[in-house]
Design a protein around this nucleic acid. Sequence first.
DNA 1: TGTATGACGAGTT
DNA 2: CAACTCGCCATAC
Length: 109
Amino acid sequence: MQLETLTFFEKVYQVAKLVPYGRVTSYGAIANYLGARKSARMVGYAMNGSHNKDVPAHRVVNRKGLLTGKHHFDGTNLMQQLLESEGIEVVDNQIQNFEKVFWNPSEEL
DNA sequence: TGTATGACGAGTT
DNA sequence: CAACTCGCCATAC
């Protein structure tokens, strides 16, 4: 645990954990909320290290609602399974009604 | 120690 | 309308 390591990653984890059940958010939304709209990339990469954390990475997708990070989960469709178990419709790695389940930290938080 | 790269996104060509 | 480029910064090699 590195206290001086309060970086984007840590912040990303914090926000990601705040995503309510049955909702999803985007990498860009988190980055934007953190004040770094251009660092959406880092958010995604941060999830790479979120394995150890309690971060629900399956609730974080790209701006199009596409499950781009599903390949980083154990199974091939684990991410989709998790989302569907929360009542989120997913077809072909794409979240249906994305606007409805989208959770914007800048507004809700 | 330096280079390459990645779960993205928005702007430009 | 599609493809390309740049920004961002921690991690891997």
